[in-house]
């Protein structure tokens, strides 16, 4: 296990800037690609892939209008907070062959907490904008947040617990889970029953992603046809642009988390490459994995179904997905106690 506690501040700052740039760029590119995916599934051509860049450029060049009823400080702070916290999540997640910039300073539990911060920023911004649509949207966002926490927590805990049961040190560290340094993954640790459990948990995580990102079917807080944009209804110009960027970064972060938890393989584990070539190959493979995750957990889900009511979000996430997650957890627990395929 590589401990990074002694890392010097300069490389942390450098790493942070690099990750922030990567997050924003990749977020916009993946949003463009995702729109293209969705368009082709709907038999459309869709906008060009560079469209999100144009959108952001245009939004950032425009004035932000603060409504009369809004609380200006909170209203203007929310988008900054959302973008900043989205980038911070990325600092804790391994990106391909690269270890997390802040590995050793925080683990999976922290990431779970951080994931709620952009949503909370949205909620605060929605309440601060003083519009009935935004208020309803904020209430719904809070309900959505509470709904997907349980399945997400189950998925995360199950993985860390299985690694701990397999006797691996520091199981909550994302670097450990992704096996960046060791090459040990959950799939190699688990036996057949455990693999079934992990597949169930993978499905759960794929379903948590649209809720986390407020996309159809869980875009109830924004619900264009009901609340005309809900939370974001009063946002315009720069502030909306920042939320747009935050959405992109968050998409990358969620997909990267799914990759780190469930699809950790790297090309360099199987093909002998020089260290630099390995980094490049692993990173390219990582981007490919992100695209696959986004395709299935964002595009296919959002294109393939109608929007839920907020009550459905609660019952589906607590009931069905919570149940599915617990079933997966049970499989993993049984697998560990039977000692199937363990590394011990």
């Amino acid at each position: 296990m590589v401990m990074m506690l002694g890392m010097d501040p300069i490389s942390i700052i450098g790493g942070t800037v690099a990750v922030a740039l990567f997050g924003i760029l990749a977020g916009l590119v993946f949003m463009g690609v995702e729109r293209k995916f969705a368009a082709h599934m709907q038999a459309r051509i869709g906008p060009p892939i560079r469209q999100p860049f144009r959108d952001v450029a245009k939004l950032l060049s425009k004035d932000s209008i603060v409504p009369e009823n809004a609380i200006p400080l909170l209203f203007n702070m929310a988008p900054v907070l959302a973008l900043a916290s989205s980038i911070v999540i990325l600092l804790y997640i391994p990106l391909g062959g690269f270890l997390p910039v802040l590995a050793g300073y925080g683990d999976l539990i922290l990431v779970m907490y951080l994931l709620t911060v952009p949503a909370l920023a949205l909620v605060a911004g929605g309440f601060a904008s003083g519009s009935p649509y935004a208020t309803v949207g904020s209430q719904r966002e809070m309900v959505t947040m509470m709904s997907y926490e349980l399945p997400l927590a189950i998925a995360v805990i199950a993985i860390a617990w299985r690694l701990a049961a397999a006797g691996i040190a520091d199981p909550f560290s994302l670097a450990t889970i992704a096996g960046t340094a060791t090459g040990i993954t959950i799939w190699s640790v688990a036996g057949p029953l455990g693999i079934i459990g992990f597949v169930l948990l993978l499905i759960v995580l794929a379903w948590v992603t649209p809720a986390e990102l407020s996309r159809v079917p869980c875009d109830t807080p924004e619900a264009e046809t009901e609340l005309c944009g809900g939370l974001l209804v009063e946002y315009s110009g720069r502030n909306l642009g920042l939320f747009y960027l935050a959405q992109g970064v968050k998409t990358v972060a969620m997909a990267a988390l799914a990759v780190a938890l469930f699809l950790p393989w790297n090309i360099s584990w199987y093909v002998a490459l020089s260290p630099n070539a390995a980094l490049v190959a692993d990173f390219a493979f990582f981007l490919l994995k992100l695209m696959v995750v986004i395709f299935f957990s964002v595009s296919v889900i959002r294109v393939g179904m109608a929007r839920f009511r907020i009550t459905h979000v609660v019952s589906i996430y607590w009931g069905y997905l919570g149940g599915l997650g617990l079933l997966g957890l049970l499989c993993v627990v049984l697998d560990a106690s039977l000692g199937g395929g363990g590394m011990l």
């Binding site: 709907q42 038999a43 619900a223 294109v303």
Partner: peptide, 16 residues
């Protein structure tokens, strides 16, 4: 109706 339900795929399909 599909669009009102947030199901844009069926909206495009029906109109096609």
């Amino acid at each position: 109706a599909a669009h009102e339900l947030g199901f844009d795929t069926l909206f495009f399909l029906a109109w096609r």
